[in-house]
């Protein structure tokens, strides 16, 4: 039951299992059917389930996401694939004004079992229009839930949980993680969808992150151990809601917090995390909360500049080192 798989395969299996179990689950998006999805997530599903349940769409993000909203209102369970986060900007009306509002505006008459999956983040020199991150915008919308799977196991669990949920859920997948390998145990009982996970224990400081940067933070922490710095690493696994208790418990132990994110720092997810934990854990902290985020700049095409615009393992290590020593008398 446990096997090593790539993250896209975990998502693919999750889709298959849910579609098999419930014929109200269907998926659509650009090139998801014949082509099998840009990142192979829907591979083979068209052959198995046919065109009504696996549909190639025109390039009409606004309307096909809206179609998902309508279908969800009558109890279907649409899984919309938006080819990348960048194109979700065209679907924001459907997501924000419709999916997130209809259950509320109707006084609870309509469920919204809608899943919108979208790959995003900075990949490899895709330039400014194709390197967007969208968490800042989506987090600010009450009524939406956001999951950010970084491992195959989480991808498997969270996609299935999202499909089974009656709330609108955005899955922010990272373009560089689809072909990363990890363990998948399909029999293991799932943890709650938005529970944060301590990836690595430590006593000196806490690194809180999500998606791909949580893996970078984990690597940074492993290397810092060689220098005698023990960092605790938390993967939030989602951004709305956020599991503050797990974070606060960690700060009660380490007393130092570094938030790491790939998105631009200004008004991003990290700002929310830092503010909430500073409010809640102020008396636990030995140093100001620090943020290590992407630069506030559109992503340059040039590869060197692109790499310099987001956190890397070594830049995380540097920020962590500095925080570990902050206020400590030499």
């Amino acid at each position: 039951m446990a096997s090593e798989v790539l993250l896209w395969q975990a998502l693919n299996q999750a889709m298959d299992v849910e579609m098999e179990a419930d014929d109200s689950v269907f998926t659509f998006g650009e090139d998801v059917a014949l082509y099998g999805g840009s990142y192979r997530v829907t591979e083979n599903l068209y052959a198995k389930y046919g065109e009504w349940r696996v549909r190639d769409t025109p390039i009409s993000e606004g309307s096909f996401t809206g179609l998902g909203v309508g279908a969800a209102m009558i109890g279907l369970r649409p899984v919309v694939e938006i080819m990348t986060v960048n194109f979700a900007l065209l679907a924001l009306d459907a997501i924000i004004n419709m999916a997130a509002k209809i259950p509320f505006m109707s006084g609870g008459q309509f469920p919204m079992p809608l899943v919108v999956r979208m790959p995003g983040g900075v990949a490899k020199q895709l330039a400014a229009q194709h390197s967007q991150r969208l968490e800042h915008t989506l987090m600010n919308v009450p009524g939406l839930r956001i999951a950010t799977p970084a491992t195959p196991q989480d991808a498997w669990w969270q996609l299935r949980q999202a499909i089974q949920s009656n709330e609108p859920i955005i899955l922010l997948e990272h373009e560089l993680l689809y072909f990363s390998k990890g363990k998948l145990d399909t029999a293991m009982e799932a943890i709650p969808m938005h529970r944060a996970v301590v990836r690595r224990e430590g006593r000196d400081l806490t690194l809180i992150s999500y998606s791909r940067t949580s893996l970078l933070a984990w690597q940074a922490a492993d290397r810092l151990a060689a220098e005698g710095i023990e960092a605790e690493v938390i993967d939030l696994r989602g951004l709305s809601p956020i599991d503050w208790d797990t974070c606060a418990a960690s700060l009660g132990k380490t007393h130092r917090l570094l938030v790491v994110e790939e998105d631009c720092g200004f008004a991003g997810a990290g700002a929310e995390i830092a503010a909430t934990l500073a409010e809640r854990c102020f008396y636990d902290l030995d140093a100001p909360v620090r943020r290590h985020a992407g630069l506030d700049i559109p992503t340059p095409y040039n590869g060197t500049l692109e790499a310099a615009s987001i956190p890397t393992v070594s830049s995380i290590m540097a920020a962590a080192r500095q925080l570990a020593l902050e206020g400590v008398d030499a």
Partner: peptide
């Protein structure tokens, strides 16, 4: 992605 590109290396092939 070079400095003398018509978009200064910021845009690349698509821009």
């Amino acid at each position: 992605g070079r400095r003398d590109g018509c978009s200064g290396g910021m845009g690349g092939s698509m821009h």
